[in-house]
Design a protein around this nucleic acid. Structure first.
Lengths: 330, 330
DNA sequence: TTTTTTATTGCAATCGATTGCTCTTTTTGG
DNA sequence: CCAAAAAGAGCAATCGATTGCAATAAAAAA
C-alpha cells in the first residue's frame, strides 16, 4: 500500500493524501475524511525510508556497546533507548566487541544508515582509532560518550569521577584502621586506568609508599577470576586488610575466596566493589560498593543527545560524582 | 556526497558509478579505477534508505523485548544481534514494557521501518492483542518467537519444555526425600504458567494431593521479593522441604531468607531456581537450577530467522529440552 | 572497406514519499 | 453582475540510489 494506491482509490492526487497524512491545512473537510477512511481501511503506514529520503532525516540513532551483556551497559542502554524511542527515534544497538577494526566497521554501518545521533558506551571507545573513524565517517553527527573521553567537536561526554571515588574508598578503609589495601583490575580499559590512578592517589595521601601499592591484574573478568586473584593476594600478602575490585562481579569472587579461607569479612578483611550492581546486593555479606551513578549518567547522556538531535549544543562535557554505598563488607 | 557528485567529478553517468560500487561487469578497467579513487577520496558510502527504497529491502530486523535489562533476554539478544549483524542486517532493539498497547505501537513502528524480520523475545508476546497487531501490520514478515507460542503462518517458535523440566525438579527433590515442595512464581506470564503446570504435574505424579500444592505469587520479581515470599512459606508451612522458584534471581532471595532463619540448605531445605544464570553461581550455597537452554534457543531462533529472511521456511516450531544443573542447594 | 558483434556508457524510469507552484473553483466584496 | 481574493487540488521536481534498454564506439569478421 503506497500513497498512490490510496490516492487512486480516493480519486485524488498523491500530494493530497500526503497532506492529509501530515495534517497539513488546505484540504476540504470532506476530502480529508474520505482519504482518512481509506488510510484506516488499508492500515496504511508511510514508508520510513521514502519519507526519510525526501525529508533528509532518518530518525535513527546508533548505540554502540562493546558488550551489551554487561549489566551496567544494558541498564544505560535501556534508559537511553526509552527516552529516544519516546521521541520518535529508532535505536540501532550493536555489540562491537573489543577490536578497533570492528568498531570502525560498525561506525561505517551507522554512517550508511545516516543515523542522526550516536551513543558510545564505555571507555573502550576512547581510542585513537575510533577517533579517526569518527572524523572520517561521522564528523557532524552529534555523539555522546558515556563514561569516556574523546576530544572532537561533535562529541560530548558524561563521565564519573571514578578516580576520586576509588581514592575515597581507600580513605574509608584507612579510616577503619585497614591501611594495607590491594587493588584488583579486571582489564586494562581506560576506565580501569582511572580507577587505578585513584587507588594510587588514595594510598599516597594516606601515607603509603610505592612498595605498599599492591596491584593485581586478571585475565577473565568473572567471579572465578576475582576468586583466584583474591587467593593470590592472600598468599602473597597475608597481612592484607582491604581489597578494592574494579567491578562488583569480580568482588563477589573475592567474598567467596575469603569465605573459603575462613577469613572474616569485614572483621579481618574489608572488601569494596565498583558499580553498585545487583551482584553486590546478592552476595553475603552484602558488598560495599562505589556507585558510579550509571542511571544518572545515562539520563544525562540521553538528554545531551536529545539536545544534539535538536540541533542545539554539540560539545558538552559533564561530570558526575561517584558515591560510596557502605554495606556489610567493610 | 551522493553518487551524482562522484559521477560529475569523474565525468561519467551516475549509473556507471553505481555499477562500480556494486562491482557489476561491463565497465572499462580504467573508468572503474578512476571512479574508485574518487569513492575512496571522499569516503563515499551509499545511503541505505535510498538503496533500500529502490531495492525494496531495508535489511532491518526488529527485536522486541519486554525488558532488555533482564539478563537472559539480553544474552539472547546478543547472540541474535551478532548473527544478524554478521549477515548485513541492522537490529532495532526495543524494550516494549508489559502493556499490550505499547507492544502494538512498537509493531507499527517496525512496519513503518519495513523490517524484514522480527524476533519476539519471551512468552509475554503470546497474547491475542499481539496476534492481532501482527496480523494487521506484519502479516508477511518472518517472525520468530523465543520461548513463546503464537499460531500464525508467518510466526515460528522455539521453545523449551520448562513444564517438563520443573516436573523433573520436583522428582529430584522427592528422590532426595523432600516431597513437601512449594513453588514461587515471580509473575503471571504465559511462561510462568507453564512452569506452574510442570510443578503441579510433578507433584501429582509423586503422589501429592491438591492440598499439597503450595503456590506462591509475588509482586516484585527481585531478590527482596524472593526473600519475603520464602519467609512467608516458612511461616505458613514450617515443614516445607523444598522450594522451586520461577527464576534464579528470586531464588537467591530464598537462599538468604533460609540463612537468616538459620535453616540449613540443602540439609533441611532444598532450593531450586530456573535459568542457569550467573546469580545462581554467585550465591552461597551455589544454586541448583533448571537450565532452560537459552544460548541454544537463541542460536536456533537466529538461524530460523535467517532462513526466513532468505525466503525459506516460514512456520517452524522447535523444542529444546531443559536440563537440571545440580549444585550445592539440593 | 563495409558490416556485424561486442564492449562501454548514458538515458530515463522507478522506489514512496514531500512540497513549491500553478491552475481551477468558489467565495466575497464592490 | 463582475472583478478580486481565497480555498482546494493537482503537477512535477526532488531525495539518492538501481537497472533495463538504447546508443555509441571499438573490435572482429566478411
Amino acid at each position: 500500500m503506497t500513497i498512490y494506491d490510496i490516492a487512486r482509490e480516493a480519486g485524488v492526487a498523491a500530494s493530497t493524501v500526503s497532506r492529509v497524512i501530515n495534517n497539513k491545512p488546505g484540504i476540504k473537510l470532506e476530502t480529508r475524511q474520505r482519504v482518512q477512511e481509506l488510510l484506516k481501511k488499508y492500515n496504511y503506514i508511510p514508508d520510513a525510508a521514502a519519507r526519510g529520503l525526501v525529508m533528509q532525516s532518518s530518525r535513527l540513532v546508533g548505540i554502540l556497546i562493546v558488550d551489551i551483556r554487561v549489566a551496567h551497559h544494558v541498564d544505560s542502554a535501556f534508559v537511553i533507548e526509552q527516552e529516544l524511542t519516546r521521541r520518535g527515534y529508532c535505536c540501532i544497538i550493536m555489540s562491537t566487541g573489543p577490536e578497533d577494526e570492528k568498531k570502525a566497521e560498525y561506525i561505517r554501518i551507522l554512517e550508511q544508515r545516516r543515523v542522526e545521533g550516536v551513543i558510545l558506551m564505555g571507555s573502550m571507545f576512547g581510542t585513537a582509532s575510533v577517533e579517526e573513524s569518527i572524523k572520517k565517517h561521522l564528523p557532524k553527527v552529534p555523539i555522546v560518550m558515556v563514561n569516556g573521553y574523546l576530544d572532537l567537536p561533535n562529541v560530548s561526554g558524561v563521565i564519573v569521577d571514578e578516580d576520586a571515588g576509588v581514592a575515597r574508598c581507600v580513605d574509608l578503609l584507612c579510616a577503619k584502621g585497614k591501611p594495607k589495601i590491594a587493588f584488583v583490575l579486571d582489564s586494562v580499559s581506560p576506565s580501569n586506568i582511572h580507577k587505578q590512578r585513584g587507588y594510587c592517589e588514595g594510598m599516597r595521601r594516606n601515607g603509603a609508599g610505592e612498595e605498599n601499592l599492591w596491584l593485581y591484574d586478571m585475565e577473565e573478568s568473572t567471579v572465578r577470576g576475582g576468586y583466584e586473584a583474591t587467593l593470590r593476594i592472600l598468599d602473597e600478602h597475608p597481612d592484607v586488610q582491604g581489597i578494592i575490585y574494579s567491578i562488583d562481579l569480580v568482588a563477589v569472587g573475592g567474598v567467596r575466596a575469603a569465605y573459603d579461607r575462613g577469613i572474616d569479612v569485614p572483621g579481618q578483611l574489608g572488601l569494596i566493589g565498583i558499580d553498585n550492581s545487583i551482584y553486590g546486593e546478592i552476595c553475603m555479606p552484602k558488598l560495599t560498593t562505589l556507585d558510579n551513578r550509571l542511571q544518572a549518567l545515562s539520563e544525562s547522556a540521553a538528554s545531551i543527545l536529545r539536545e544534539g538531535l535538536e540541533g542545539k549544543v554539540q560539545n558538552k562535557k559533564m561530570m558526575m560524582f561517584s558515591e560510596i554505598i557502605e554495606r556489610e563488607s567493610t
